[in-house]
């Protein structure tokens, strides 16, 4: 119980800091250290992902970091992608997809490193405030937040909305096909392709994850796959961790956050590559 609580606090903290679900920490802990079956671990983890999203997003909403309109706009195609992914699961060669995703994550990691200094410069110079495009202006997706690390009010206008919604579809598709959380893709999509500040991307991704994960979790729950005795300490742990993570995130310089996120992307890329290779060898 103690180990479960500690790993859940850590998963919630990391999840809130980077806008991801945290399942990548919860599932291995439950299976490797607590000897749980993979089905029980996934069912427990998905409930934890919903909890970390709610805890993180509520804090970020209070700080004005989450952009609800942007989250809902991108979620339309992400959900559609996840549904298509789940339906295509049976027919697609997973090993190649894992390798493609590994390469994509590595590319995104390199981009995060390349732009980490530029992010801070743009925060200080108001460089995120642009003209926007027809969709972002029509839906009034622009917003602002107070950056606690740089002590400035950052105004921003998302751009390339069409590319963003297309990429979100593919993020959802990969999620549905390969069972990975969408946050690790959603954050760079907003930050690198749509010109949304890193911290807003993290806060918005956190809100989006809850929407996607709650649907999946409700299915697991209604089929009786969620064990309340396991889920309860995980939920309490991730709520504590996510609340703490969301309090810390805005105090970190956006550049450092990008570098740390790049390391996370490299780790995910490695995970995907090893999965892809093991499937190839197995086949």
């Amino acid at each position: 119980m103690g180990l479960m609580l500690i790993s859940s606090i850590f998963a919630g903290f990391v999840g809130a800091l980077f806008g991801i679900g945290g399942g990548v920490i919860i599932v291995p802990t439950l299976t490797a250290f607590l000897g749980l079956g993979i089905k029980d671990a996934i069912a427990t983890s998905i409930v934890g992902v919903v909890a970390t999203s709610i805890a993180g997003a509520s804090r970020y909403l209070k700080q004005g970091i989450t952009n609800v309109k942007l989250a809902l706009f991108l979620e339309t195609s992400a959900t559609l992608g996840a549904m298509s992914g789940a339906m295509l699961e049976m027919v697609s060669p997973s090993s190649i997809l894992f390798m493609i995703l590994a390469a994509l994550l590595l590319f995104m990691a390199l981009n995060q490193v390349k732009t980490f200094r530029e992010e801070e410069r743009r925060i200080r110079s108001g460089g995120f405030k642009g003209k926007g495009d027809r969709i972002s202006n029509g839906l009034r997706l622009s917003g602002s937040y107070h950056d606690a690390a740089d002590r400035v009010r950052v105004e921003y206008t998302p751009t390339r909305s069409k590319l963003g919604i297309l990429m979100s579809y593919f993020a959802g598709l990969f999620s549905g096909l390969l069972g990975i959380g969408g946050g690790v893709l959603k954050v760079p999509i907003m930050n690198q392709f749509m010109d949304v500040p890193m911290k807003v991307s993290v806060g918005t991704s956190k809100f989006m994850i809850g929407i996607t994960a709650s649907t999946a979790a409700l299915v697991y729950f209604s089929f009786g796959l969620v064990k309340p005795e396991l889920a309860s300490p995980v939920v309490l742990g991730v709520v504590m961790g996510a609340t703490l993570g969301a309090m810390v995130m805005n105090r970190i310089k956006a550049g450092y956050l990008k570098l740390a996120f790049a390391s996370l992307l490299v780790y995910f890329s490695y995970l995907m590559a090893t999965k892809g290779l093991s499937l190839m060898v197995g086949a």
Partner: peptide, 30 residues
């Protein structure tokens, strides 16, 4: 969920609290 855990450790009926907590949690985003 905290009440459920407390009841679990006290050996009292706990599932009602845990199940209500999880249901409430999962419907919150919707």
């Amino acid at each position: 969920l905290a009440i459920g855990l407390a009841l679990y450790f006290l050996g009292l009926p706990y599932r009602w609290a845990m199940l209500s907590g999880i249901t409430l949690l999962l419907f919150t985003p919707m």
